[in-house]
Each structure stands twice: as C-alpha cells, then as structure tokens.
Design a binder for these strands. Sequence first.
DNA 1: CTGATCTACAACCATATGGTTGTACGTTAG
DNA 2: CTAACGTACAACCATATGGTTGTAGATCAG
Lengths: 113, 113
Amino acid sequence: MVVDQLSDADVDRLFQALADATRRDIIARVITGEYSVSALATHYTMSFAAVQKHVAVLERASLVTKEKRGREQIVRGNREAVQRARQLLDEYEMIWRQRVDRIADILTEEPEE
Amino acid sequence: MVVDQLSDADVDRLFQALADATRRDIIARVITGEYSVSALATHYTMSFAAVQKHVAVLERASLVTKEKRGREQIVRGNREAVQRARQLLDEYEMIWRQRVDRIADILTEEPEE
DNA sequence: CTGATCTACAACCATATGGTTGTACGTTAG
DNA sequence: CTAACGTACAACCATATGGTTGTAGATCAG
C-alpha cells in the first residue's frame, strides 16, 4: 500500500508540523483527550496567539482537527495523519531491506561451477 | 523501548530535515547506493551549493553521513536515524491504542447488578 | 606543472517561521 | 444588558531557511 496520494507539499507540511516540540506536545495531549485552544494554551508559557498559530500549523498538516463547540474550539488528533507519516518512513526502511536482500543475493548467488 | 535519548532539538532537526522534498529524494538515493555530493547535484536543477546545503541539513540531523574519498565526499544514508523517527511516530500510535483500549474498558466494565 | 574537478564557505537576498501585542467579534454567565 | 471568556486575525519583529553567486583550497588527469 503506497500511502494514499500525498503531494510533496502535503508531506512537507506533515513533517514540518512535527518539527517543533510544542506542536508535538500538543499532539500528545489531544491524542489522549479533548482540549480547547485556550485549555491547551494554559500549559505553555507563550502567548495564546502563539499557541493558536501552532494549532493552525497542525491543522494545515491534517494532524489535528478543530470543531466549534459553543464559544470554544475543540482540538482533536487525527490518527490517520500520524499513520501516514509513519508509513512514509516505513517505505524508506523497505527500500533499505530490499537493498540488503539484494546484496545478500549477490553474495550467495556464486554458481559452484 | 523509549527510542534512545533524543533531545527536543534532535527531534526538531530530524523532522525538519525530512520536511523538504529534495532532501527526501536525496535520502531515497543514498539509501540505494553511493553518491558523491556532486553526483547528487546532477539530479537537481538547483545549484551545487544548494545541494551541498541540503546534504548538510541531513547530516546535522544524522540522516546521512559523509566520508571523504579522494577529492569526493561520499554520502550514505543512516538507517538508525530513519528508524528513530519512525519509532517516535509509533509512540503516538501506542498512546492512541491505549486510549482506545481504555475507552473500550469503560464501555464493557458495566457491572451487571 | 597545468587545468579541470570536487568541495567548502562566505556574502547576499527573498521569503517563511515563531514569537509578540492589539483589536474585534461571537458566546456565555450573572 | 453587561462583563468576562474564547477565538480570530492583523501588524510587527527577529531569526531561520532555501536559494543564489563568487572565491578559494585539495585532488586528480594528462
């Protein structure tokens, strides 16, 4: 399975979103429970607007979704996006394995003539 | 196994390095074979110096290593770094699974009194 | 030795990123 | 109704990023 149809730009956004400790922490939180944006913001020293921006980056990367509930915006983790990222890395590892296998083949295919 | 001891900055560099299509392409190439920096550069329209910078980013993220051979610098992929990145994403999925299990437990633990 | 090749690195530029503060607007509580 | 809350968004700033060109040092070929 070749990991859906993700454009280069999609994958860029995915890994870019993961390349920040605050955003990874946000992901970890919204995986385990529901958080409004302001509830998330209480856990960090930066401003509310900064947290808002981080959530926006995660949202553009499809790593989280937002759902309006009253005056709050509930942030939830998107499991599929994390899986897609993992699968992309799996593909690299597969290429590696194939290469190792191929080298092993070459080493063992000496005909005994 | 909690994926070695990677600092936030290390993980930042890892995902940051993966967040560029050219760099991902370089990784794919050096996984399957040996490439000098200039050999890599022939595959892209950008300047040699730009490719050099991309390789430097990958090197700082430990995703590739460089080894001097004559006047060339041979670039090789570092399998462990890719595995570490994948394992980090695995941890998110584990948290998710635990949560799903926990919710399932709650749903089924209704005592039949 | 000389010239071509491979690399390193500095300087520069445009744009992106991560942070701030301030303003505005819908929603809820009293 | 009014005040407080949660959010959105603009403007601004410093720094990082991704690209360029140019210069210079090793190394190899002839």
